[in-house]
Amino acid sequence: MISINNLHANVEDKNILKGLNLEIKPGEVHAIMGPNGAGKSTLGNVLAGRDGYEVTAGSVTLNGKDILEMEPEERAREGLFLAFQYPVEIPGVSNLEFLKASVDAVRAHQGKPALDSVQFLKLAREKCKAVNLDQSFLKRGVNEGFSGGEKKRNELMQMMLLEPSLCILDETDSGLDIDALQVVAEGVNAMRDANRSFIVVTHYQRLLDYIVPDYVHVLANGRIVKSGGKELALELEEKGYGWLESADNGAA
């Protein structure tokens, strides 16, 4: 699915990712945990191709294709989806227009037939219902005045409409109460299948009670310093990150 090899990346000339390796197979869910400033959000932004996130070494292939030279929209069309930690508000552009433009672009690239307005509206309404958002949200400006939970559900709705092969959830649990968290987790779980992979970036073990990962990695100081099964998350919850960071520094 995705192979990340020796990835180094700078943000504003500061070296954030320092040789990150990660191999994810179809259908797997990988959780990435780590302390503040470890590079967790940078990883999502680098993979999605955001301006200002400069890759200085290493490679990333998605389904066998080198994506590092691609524009963000090409990566999205190739099946990469980043659910934002802070989804952007775009007043004046309706959610429905935005979603349609997005789905049209991705489907066209993937050679799927275009949906007409009526078909699309029907589909969008179904997905609204699936994430427990009122249909009036389709008419409002993109994320405009949405609460934190509504924004995250809107991200999830986009994910459902685009059917990506790799979903990166960037601290999707931040700012969510337990009910909203369950809705989002159920949505994600419903999308899990043998061909779709997930990178779940989170600060807290709590999310992983609901989205149970196959693997857990600890990102510290720009590298993955420890990997394990889902039980690693519990160990981190108990012990914190300190013991790993000092181990890493010792190794370096």
Binding site: E73, F81, L82
Partner: peptide, 21 residues
Amino acid sequence: FYMQSRGISKKEAEVMLSFGF
């Protein structure tokens, strides 16, 4: 970036954002 990350081309994103404004 948000619009592009959803597959929308840079040019179309510019048009949509300008119009939205």
